[in-house]
Write a protein that binds this DNA or RNA. Structure first.
Lengths: 179, 179
DNA sequence: TGCGCCATGTAAAGAGTTACATGATTCG
DNA sequence: CGAATCATGTAACTCTTTACATGGCGCA
């Protein structure tokens, strides 16, 4: 009825890096794809149980509740099938800052400029972060390197665009009515 | 327990443009902020009832179920208060295409290039759309004009960055292994 | 008369988050 | 031993979408 869950593919994909516990899975997800994908424990554990029932993952050692999970052949197959499907549309995200700006005429003076300034700070932090990440990934010697690099470049591209837009927006506000 | 709903502010903001039925509200939202904000009827109608109970909106005519809604003084106050709050973080969105690329090594050959090509098409459509929108808004003679323009420029900035990234990604894939 | 649009609502279901509860292991 | 970390899981709750049900109005 709603869109199907994609959590499972993040899990299956991450397990191609090797067997892992649910806890470590969450850590890895945060460290590698955290910029565009997050999972909570409340989501992960039920998903793992479900995947086990479907035979897409299995416990490595014998049935101990604390053994790491590993992906099965069927799991790899499911991952490959998903990779071939078209990703969901790119637009739907909600952007609260834009909503505030759209109705910005009703804000008290200076409020929007404050929002823009904070937004810019966050973008600059993100840019520094991505820059470091890019260096790390570029130095990586892994068959995944190119793919990872592309995702980092996406972050850099968005942040760059965000910063240019931020400056543009501030200039437009100044034209409108200099503080 | 989860994040508070922002639907109400889209509603209150939209009602600053004048009294409207729920149906028209949905239409207006889609036409003006649809690029970064959407609402469904299943969300709108309950929200309107709740806002009425809180005294933030009221029916224009007398109690007829089909009269348009209008914003009250308290509603304007609530809108202004929200405008002064800091918007939620900019990052959290999930991006399925990036997830696919991150695990792209396990995809069949050519699959990622296909995804990128379709993604590019959609971006180009979006760019054309935004360009038209920008012309429309620029010609507008409204006190909201500058604010609206800023949101359109945001769309243009993102689309531009997306297109550059798309080309960059294709080039990286070619380096990796030309088809 | 019938079609299409305007209009309002409810029901069902899923996705996802946060908070809580619980226990093992490790290490100083 | 005590604290921090590793680890698993559940419960409650919210948001949100989709589908369904219903009816008035305009007009060709």
């Amino acid at each position: 009825m709603t869109r199907p869950a994609k959590t499972r593919y993040a899990v299956l994909g991450m397990l191609t890096h090797g067997p892992m516990t649910g806890y470590r899975l969450r850590e890895q997800i945060r460290e590698t794809v955290g910029h565009f994908w997050q999972e909570s424990f409340g989501q992960l554990y039920p998903t793992l149980s479900q995947l086990e029932q479907e035979g897409l993952v299995r416990r490595g050692g014998d049935a101990d509740r604390r053994d790491p999970w590993e992906i099965t052949a069927a799991g790899r197959q499911a991952l490959r099938a998903w990779l071939a499907t078209e990703a969901e549309s790119l637009s739907p995200e909600r952007n609260e800052l834009l909503l505030q700006i759209f109705f910005g005429r009703h804000a008290d003076p200076g409020v929007l400029r404050g929002h823009l300034a904070r937004h810019r700070e966050r973008l600059e932090e993100a840019r520094a972060h991505y820059a470091g990440l890019e260096a790390l990934v570029a130095a990586e010697d892994s068959p995944d390197r190119t793919y990872w690099l592309i995702t980092v470049r996406h972050g850099l591209a968005l942040v760059g665009a965000g910063l240019r837009w931020n400056a543009d927006a501030a200039a437009l506000l100044d034209e409108e009515g200099p503080v």
